[in-house]
Design a protein around this nucleic acid. Structure first.
Lengths: 379, 379
DNA sequence: ATTACAAATTGACGCGCGGAAAAAAACAGA
DNA sequence: TCTGTTTTTTTCCGCGCGTCAATTTGTAAT
């Protein structure tokens, strides 16, 4: 009975514990036998082609573009593909192709849900387009941005989508990269770099919010970081000021000290300080982004301020970005929702165009998308 | 003057706008010239070796292990490395190496900050160990877990770290993968799969929380999902029940309907329903995880319940995991902090061991780490 | 059947590197 | 200076596929 898998099965009947253990092992062994015996494993395209009765170059053509071979042979290959579960070696492919099907995606910080959501959609869009996305986060460290681009070079990407840090980005190294690969920026712009830019029209979105706040109550103060790395923050301040002036209201900007990516913590600490000092001129505060607003809400809660648009409330807070958590703050946060789909799909198609026309550079194209007002309880 | 770069520079002096624009372009051109002229570009290891006066196999040895060549030649190579910025072609390397330096990392959902944090640390630990981490999220879709593993096969990873879905995982395909590659599980366990498991000792952590809640007020009810996918949830319920019995208190478990990964939304909806129905037997609620607690807090806020451990409060809420946002909920959430570093570093070292001893399988090793009580305002 | 054209085959080369074996060179110690 | 040991060099082959030119086969019309 030695070596007989059925014998091994029986051994498990002795004790329940042993049974479970040996059953697991045997399942593996049987699996291995099964794999080895049913069809001899295909090791490369040569063997695969031989197994079907087609030449290797034809199979190669098929994998590059299934429509480029005759329907009948395509059928043959696709059918065999199911039987043999062969897949071409990606390393060998990418070594020889002029251009890979890789698309690099670099974002400043995946720990920020906003970029996470953006990255997730970019990922899907790339896959849909038949490319392989390589997503890299710079973990909030500007130096990592350049480092990420450098290591992406090794993968010989067909193109790269970059959401840059902004002021803290190493423009020089990004430009160098732009010189060597098709590059499209999204979320934040960097003048003169990349073949296209896609982002939100902060002037429209901030104006929309200011308009709403003015119509529904007091005109808002503006709450932001003192030295924001992200260029969108500067644009939003500018947009706030212009919008207020258009409404014949005096703009009032309050800036929080603090550096780094802990926006909530900064909003909590600095917002609390300003609130308890009575620094805000009106009881309506528009925050530069939701994360800052979340911190401010926590501060207001701690100070016993009643936030909301109801009669019993004495403070209104609004944000920007429609952060995933803004639905669950106390109270739920009134904010602006960015057009993720619009930005992402446009960014990806722009990059694909840039890839196709390859070296023949054309005009840089900027596209901005409108934000939507999300009315919740906080303002 | 045609073709003279200095002439091009001068053109910029005409207007400030033109100046900026043309300067940008010229900087690129100069960069290109610079690159092409200073040193002829090194195309492969052959040329690089020739440039130093060393043989290619020696250079190859160097890249595999810098310590394996004589100190003097190592110096020569490293010095030349700075001058020529050559880097070996990763595709060619991985095609020929027996084992790559890739480590696959698969987590169920990066949109969950808990997994995001875990993944980030794993990423860093792998890099520190000299490996290249490839992080993949299954975006909350169990089928994607198997798909992720399958596509990882193409990269011929040296090993894989998997945080499995649990009940919804495709055990069969994971086992098959386990059969072909070194595999280590973390966060959630799957019996009999992988060479090791690292996670939190839920019995210890839940017991710690129950103990604290009992000592500081009423014994807690337990709030969880009805059909949790994650095996940790089952363990935590079990731990809660045992701990309550040990305290001679009657365990009271309340389960929220709802599927998927929108824990906050489920906590908000179902928690609100239970709260307004007065379903909880005591005014202290221990949630299976922070995200559920965050939803419950939002529900309590909406119902005007005063949450906290103060005298003026009528509800206590506690969570588990120390979610990044739990510091900013209203009130700040009392919770259990998992030992990220312990889990991650152990998981990675386990995998590295498994990789080194290669095919010679040894006993599966399970390691659990203790959670820390984080006392904040909610309980 | 003849023609014309598209598609598939054959055979060959190259990509950039890992890796092995044998020979040569460099080194260390006495 | 000689010997014994490392280290390096030389010279191969192989990995799995892309790509190309020349040829053959197949397909659909005239």
């Amino acid at each position: 009975m030695k070596g007989n898998p059925y014998a091994l099965f029986r051994r498990g009947e002795e004790t329940s514990k042993l049974y479970v253990a040996s059953f697991d092992i045997d399942a593996d062994q049987i699996l291995a036998l099964h794999v080895n015996m049913s069809e001899q494993k295909i090791r490369n395209m040569e063997e695969f082609a031989a197994a079907i009765g087609v030449s290797r170059p034809t199979v190669s053509k098929f994998f590059n573009d299934p429509a480029s071979v005759r329907p009948k042979t395509r059928e043959k290959i696709e059918e065999a593909l199911e039987r043999h579960d062969y897949r071409p070696n990606v390393f060998a492919i990418n070594q020889n192709r002029r251009s890979t099907k890789n698309i690099g995606v670099v974002v400043p910080n995946l720990a920020d849900p906003f970029f996470l959501e953006l990255a997730r959609r970019v990922e899907l869009a790339c896959i849909d387009a038949g490319y392989t996305p390589i997503v890299r986060s710079s973990h909030g460290v500007p130096e990592l941005e350049s480092a990420n681009l450098e290591t992406l070079r090794d993968l010989k990407p067909a193109g790269v989508l970059l959401a840059p840090f902004g002021r803290e980005s190493d423009i020089r190294s990004i430009k160098k990269f732009d010189h060597d690969f098709p590059l499209v920026l999204f979320d934040a712009d960097l003048s003169g770099v990349g073949q296209a830019f896609c982002g939100t029209d902060n002037f429209q979105s901030i104006n929309l919010m200011v308009e709403y706040l003015c119509r529904s109550g007091e005109p808002p103060c503006f709450f932001e970081m003192k030295t924001p790395a992200n260029p969108n923050a500067d644009t939003r301040r500018q947009a706030y000021i212009e919008s207020m002036e258009r409404h014949n209201e005096r703009p009032r900007v309050h800036q929080a000290m603090g550096q780094g990516w802990d926006f909530e913590a900064i909003g909590l600490a600095e917002g609390g300080r300003l609130l308890s000092a009575g620094a805000f001129e009106t009881q309506t505060i528009l925050c530069s982004n939701d994360r800052l607003a979340i911190g401010l809400l926590a501060a207001a809660y701690g100070l016993g301020r009643r936030v909301g648009h109801g009669a019993d409330c004495n403070l209104r807070v609004a944000g920007h970005d429609d952060h995933p958590f803004s639905r669950f703050t106390c109270p739920a946060l009134t904010t602006i929702s960015q057009d993720y789909d619009g930005i992402v799909s446009r960014a990806v198609t722009s990059l694909l165009q840039a890839i196709e026309r390859d070296r023949s550079r054309s005009e840089r194209i900027d596209t901005t998308f409108e934000g939507r007002l999300i009315m919740r309880d906080s303002a």
